[in-house]
Amino acid sequence: MNGAIEISTGNLAIGLIFIVIAGIMSVIHGLKLEKDLTIGTIRSIAQLTAMGYLLKIIFSMESAVFVIILFAVMTFFAAEIIKGRVKKQNVPYFLPTLFSVQITFFLITYIVTALIVEAKPWWTPQYFIPIGGMIAGNSMSALAISLDRLFSDFKAKRALVEMKLCLGASPAEASSEIFKDALKAGMIPSINGMMGAGLVSIPGMMTGQILAGSDPTEAVKYQIVVMLMLVASTAIASFIVLKLVGGRCFGKGGNLLV
């Protein structure tokens, strides 16, 4: 099969019609989204173009140092975005979130590139960065859901948690149900993603490979790996962050701080 058909810059500009349509809708219905649409369009074009050039440079350099720098930048922004999505709390959770994204990104991406794809070296940027990016992106959603659930449950079930503490439960024992529910909430979207794959949608990675001219049966193999790794990454990321943040929700006296 040949590679993807190239899109000329002029043709790419036609894509702006989609934003114009959305803008007209906003004006007609008074949604006041014109400014956000304009900023969003400029940001996505600028960020993706910059990312394209950056990846091109990093792919050509084949330097582990640059891969590590990009890994650090991607995980930092993932943690920053999670901080923005979860309602402000009096329990700090930025560093546990960053740690959780970094461990998950590194561990799962290593397993995929080194053991499944067998890329040589395992940090080959062409594989390590996009696969890690998918893991960071999905872990980000899972972590935001898990943390939000953890904090809201602690507030809603405060009486239940304190009742158990008063009967001699340790913080971990008193919050075990809340921990389980928050972990489950973080994992469910990726499990649902597996259920609908190939029935409801052609998932992203497979779509990209097919557009780039890959054999669909080969693209399927990559997609299967992606679906499986996303389930594991959301589980691991949520587990780590909930363990770290859940402990911080209690004071030295085992008192609930949330």
Binding site: L160, E162, M163, C166, L167, G168, G254
Partner: peptide
């Protein structure tokens, strides 16, 4: 130990849980 303390100094909440 907080767990040990709380079984000796028991707290009964206003709303029974």
């Amino acid at each position: 130990n907080p767990e040990m303390l709380r079984r000796k100094v028991a707290f009964i909440q206003q709303t029974p849980t």
